[in-house]
């Protein structure tokens, strides 16, 4: 949250206002609120007046309708006006809830127990998850899920330009996966999975991750996508095959007789006797050359062998 005036950033006198909502969103919200007020007032007021004419004098009904319309419109105006703040609270709702629960718990604990008991309870609550690796990993994984939703929102707000009104995609729930997190997002008009594919590297940087993949989460709705955030390589260990378990390793060895050549080193193979296994001449090549590179005539009998060697060099 930055100060409203950049001039006063460095210790100048503050006006006391803090920018919670960006100016663009603020203007858009004001306009929307006005439109919402007028529309609600007219529609609700009109409907209320029509219904009221059945019971009251038309003029009284009209006045009543106007009153109901203005009241409802004002309520809607207020709702739309504070919507950016409600949205902000919604984004941080989990953290706010967690903070409230933790603080309340701490205060209640401190008020109702002695210091020693308080410390023991806190030590158990913190120490047990920290000491048991499985629990610790679970807590860390879910913490990343909280963090990554905010990081994704930063991506959308900072460098992924969406609609003119500046509304952000709905970042739905996130779950931990063995490699990182998986976050479901509902895109708003102006964005597509294709647009995001070109920015996956930037998203990965913003999310402090290694790589990010995006795929559609629904066959029928292109707006519903899924981000796979990957921060660690898990496929490092060796995977054993279950085939080993279905066999009896004491089975008698079975191998057909195999003729093994003894020429296993280069000097063992004499030059004219090179015969690569059925290595035939390439079709595109001309038949045996009449002269070699130095102009001498090759021996007719070694022409095939020469061709074979040159293919392999």
């Amino acid at each position: 949250m930055s100060k409203s005036s950049p001039r006063r950033r460095f210790g100048g006198k503050s006006t006391g206002t803090v920018t919670v909502i960006e100016a663009r969103v603020h203007r858009s919200s004001a306009r929307n609120a006005k439109v919402a007020f007028v529309l609600t007032a007219i529609i609700v007021g009109g409907l209320a007046a029509v219904v009221a004419t059945s019971y009251l004098h038309p003029i009284v009904a009209l006045l009543l309708g106007g009153l109901i319309g203005v009241t409802t419109g004002a309520f809607v105006w207020l709702l739309v006006r504070v919507w950016p703040v409600i949205r902000l609270l919604w984004w941080w709702s989990t953290e706010i809830l967690l903070a409230v629960v933790l603080l309340t718990g701490w205060v209640q604990l401190a008020n109702h127990t002695s210091t020693l008991v308080t410390l023991v309870v806190v030590a158990v609550l913190v120490g047990v998850p920290a000491g048991i690796p499985k629990l610790r990993r679970l807590v860390i994984a879910w913490s990343w899920c909280l963090i990554v939703r905010h990081r994704l929102r930063v991506c959308f707000a900072q460098f992924i330009i969406a609609s003119q009104s500046g509304s952000l995609p709905l970042i739905l729930w996130a779950t931990p996966t063995p490699v990182g997190e998986r976050v479901w997002v509902y895109l708003r008009p102006g964005l597509s999975a294709k647009d995001l594919e070109g920015r996956l590297d930037k998203i990965a940087v913003t999310c402090h991750a290694s790589t990010v993949l995006i795929e559609r989460a629904s066959e029928g709705n292109a707006a519903y996508v899924r981000f796979d955030i990957k921060r660690r390589e898990v496929l490092n260990a060796r995977v054993n095959s279950p085939l080993v378990d279905v066999i009896d390793p004491s089975a008698p060895a079975s191998a057909s007789p195999l003729t093994v050549p003894t020429a296993l080193d280069l000097p063992d193979v004499e030059v004219p006797t090179v015969t690569l296994p059925t290595q035939a001449k390439p079709a595109g090549k001309k038949s045996a050359p009449t002269t070699t590179a130095n102009g001498s005539k090759p021996a007719a009998s070694s022409a095939d062998a020469d061709d074979d060697v040159s293919d392999w060099i």
Binding site: E215, L235, A237, R238, V239, N240, S241, P242, L243, V244, I247, D248, P249, A251, P252, A253, S254
Partner: peptide, 25 residues
């Protein structure tokens, strides 16, 4: 329809020959 990152199971030479021997049996 989407590529999946996998790790292929590994059979050591001994495993391979054990399976081959057993299968031949």
């Amino acid at each position: 329809g989407m590529p999946r990152r996998i790790k292929a199971a590994y059979l050591t030479d001994t495993d391979i020959y054990n399976i081959a021997d057993y299968a031949a049996w």
